[in-house]
Amino acid sequence: MTRIDAKFADLKSRGKKAFVAYVMAGDPDFDRSLEIVRGLPGAGVDVIELGLPFTDPMADGPTIQLAGQRALEGGMTLTRTLDLARAFREQDQETPIVLMGYYNPIYSMGVDKFLPAAKEAGIDGLIIVDLPPEEDIELCLPAQDAGLNFIRLATPTTDDKRLPRVMQNTSGFVYYVSITGITGAAQAEAADVRPEVERIKAAADLPVIVGFGVTTPQKARAIAEVADGVVIGSAIVNKIAGGESTEDVLRFVASLAEGAHSA
């Protein structure tokens, strides 16, 4: 059982919904990023999604793109991202970390080198947005053999014919992208999300966490009421981009977590 599996089992036993927070590793710099990440569990975050900076983030909107650019300009790499996770684990051995990004940096390092390094650094799961199920042999299956969850995205355009293939070999949880388009592009609506969550849960016995288009505590609660939890990224990254202090960023995160946990 991974930390992700254990976390969702615990939340379910307590009748609680999950709050997942996304931040870009190395944004605005390594030290500040580590400070923020270390503060997330205390702000109520159940699972940390750690963005892996990449030069061509095709699924991300301007907010996440610029965060990745800032991180890359500051010297952030895949190796440094694992260093950040390793430093986080010096103080926290319980909070799950999901590494979210694109396959190119992993391919460049080499899967055989990356997987043991990620496991040793304390990474618990992967969301690699540009690897479809047809490429499971590339990373998904080796990752699961190494003890990492491989978390798949489902979208409004994932029809009933495609859904079983998408759910095959998925573990940890399913990330439902509530809108079509890029991150930060529109607002998620609970009425639209509910039937999609039910459809996914009928196809996979896994928690369904909803992301994209959630920006406020009120929206977090509304979405968490119809899913197993909610992911928020762009709204948090915007606070970091605006130069707000770590305390203010974490205060905002705490308000989002309170919204999700009140569902």
Rank of each mutant, 00 (worst) to 15 (best):
G51E: 06
I36S: 09
I36M: 09
G75W: 02
D46Y: 07
A227V: 06
T180E: 08
T155F: 10
Q65Y: 05
S13W: 06
Q91I: 09
K16D: 06
V23Q: 09
G259A: 09
L99R: 12
A260E: 08
K12A: 10
Y102P: 07
S108T: 03
P105R: 03
S262T: 13
D112K: 12
A222L: 00
P96K: 03
G110F: 03
E247N: 09
L78G: 14
P53M: 04
D124Y: 02
F8Q: 15
L139D: 00
I209Q: 14
Q93I: 01
K12C: 04
Y22F: 09
E196I: 11
V177N: 11
I106Y: 10
D136P: 12
Q218N: 03
V230C: 11
T183L: 09
T183A: 00
K161S: 07
D92C: 15
A263R: 01
T180S: 06
E90T: 06
A260S: 13
Q187K: 10
D60S: 07
V210K: 05
A21C: 13
M76W: 13
I209W: 03
I48L: 12
L126C: 14
V231H: 02
T55D: 03
A59R: 04
I48S: 11
T170G: 12
A6C: 05
E189M: 09
R14M: 07
F8R: 14
I137E: 06
L72V: 00
P156V: 08
T95R: 01
V249H: 05
G110K: 00
Q168R: 15
T158F: 07
V174H: 11
T55W: 04
V23L: 14
I209M: 15
A203H: 11
E258M: 02
R165T: 03
A260T: 05
V231W: 05
G242H: 00
I137G: 05
Q65K: 14
Q65N: 12
H261V: 00
E258C: 00
L163I: 03
E189W: 08
I123V: 11
R199N: 13
A21H: 02
D83E: 14
P116T: 14
T95H: 02
R38D: 08
V193M: 01
A21R: 03
G68Q: 02
S234H: 15
E138T: 11
V23W: 02
P53D: 06
A59M: 10
D31N: 11
T180N: 07
E73F: 08
L82A: 12
A59Q: 08
A257I: 02
A85E: 00
E120A: 04
D46H: 07
E134T: 04
G147H: 06
K239Q: 13
I127Y: 02
R38Q: 11
N104A: 09
Y22C: 01
I64T: 11
A85N: 05
A220W: 07
V166N: 03
D159Y: 13
G147E: 02
A186K: 15
K12P: 10
G42H: 05
I240T: 05
T155Q: 12
V197W: 15
I64Q: 09
F30R: 02
P96R: 10
I36Y: 09
S245H: 07
G172E: 07
P96G: 04
T180A: 08
D192C: 14
K239N: 05
T55L: 00
P207Y: 02
Q91F: 14
K113H: 12
P116E: 05
R14Q: 12
